[in-house]
């Protein structure tokens, strides 16, 4: 019994300290896709896998490590699907619903960020974007990690068919966000969605 408790304690501690699954893979400059969500990166990134408790189509890319920059490339969510898996029926996470207004799409992502343990999430600068022949929205994010670190971000959401394709970038406000913002905006501009 006590050995089981020890194993659980060690596993818990590991979960607290690790944010992404194992299986790191280099993403060289060029095209990259998570299902039907395709982007082009201008330099080598690392595919960190997916976050613990994230849905299957959620891929996490980083340059300097997930604590310093996180680019989520999320395959098209079908209606009823979520970015973060719920812990139980009584603790549901935000689910995508086809036909949400742009404001509701922003709300969907902001609520998802709260599930991802970001606090004081604020969105702003909502603006229209064209992704290929699709219309979408892009907006800015500010939030804090649980330990009070300020983070900034950009998100791009495009509805195609009844699916929602998401690109989400987050980095510490100090230095890291501004250092990579232009590059990430270029990646978002390169996006193409659809099966």
């Amino acid at each position: 019994m006590i050995a089981r408790k020890l194993r659980v304690a060690v596993a818990l501690a590991a979960l607290v300290s690790l944010s992404a699954c194992a299986g790191l893979k280099a993403v060289p400059a060029g095209p990259y896709a998570s299902g039907g969500n395709q982007i082009t990166v201008g330099r080598t990134w690392t595919d960190m896998g997916r976050l613990f408790d994230a849905s299957k189509g959620v891929r996490l890319l980083s340059i300097d490590g997930p604590q310093l920059n996180r680019l989520f490339v999320i395959d098209g969510l079908k209606p009823g699907e979520f970015i973060m898996r719920p812990a139980s029926k009584e603790k549901p996470t935000p689910t995508w619903k086809a036909g949400l207004s742009p404001t509701e799409q922003v709300e969907f992502l902001a609520d998802t960020l709260a599930v991802m343990q970001y606090y004081r999430v604020e969105t702003g600068g909502l603006r229209p974007v064209k992704v290929g022949d699709r219309s979408g929205v892009r907006f800015d994010i500010t939030a804090q990690t649980v330990d009070g670190l300020d983070v900034s971000g950009i998100a791009q959401l495009v509805e195609a068919g009844d699916r929602l394709y998401v690109l989400l970038y987050l980095a510490p406000t100090e230095h890291y966000f501004s250092a990579t913002k232009a590059e990430v905006e270029g990646i978002m501009a390169s996006a193409r969605v659809g099966a």
Binding site: M1, I2, A3, K5, L6, A9, V10, L12, A13, V16, S17
Partner: peptide, 17 residues
């Protein structure tokens, strides 16, 4: 039974829980 978990305390796990 706290005897075995003394080893864990030495591992610094406590601080991260």
């Amino acid at each position: 039974n706290v005897g075995m978990v003394l080893m864990l305390a030495g591992g610094g796990i406590v601080g991260s829980l």
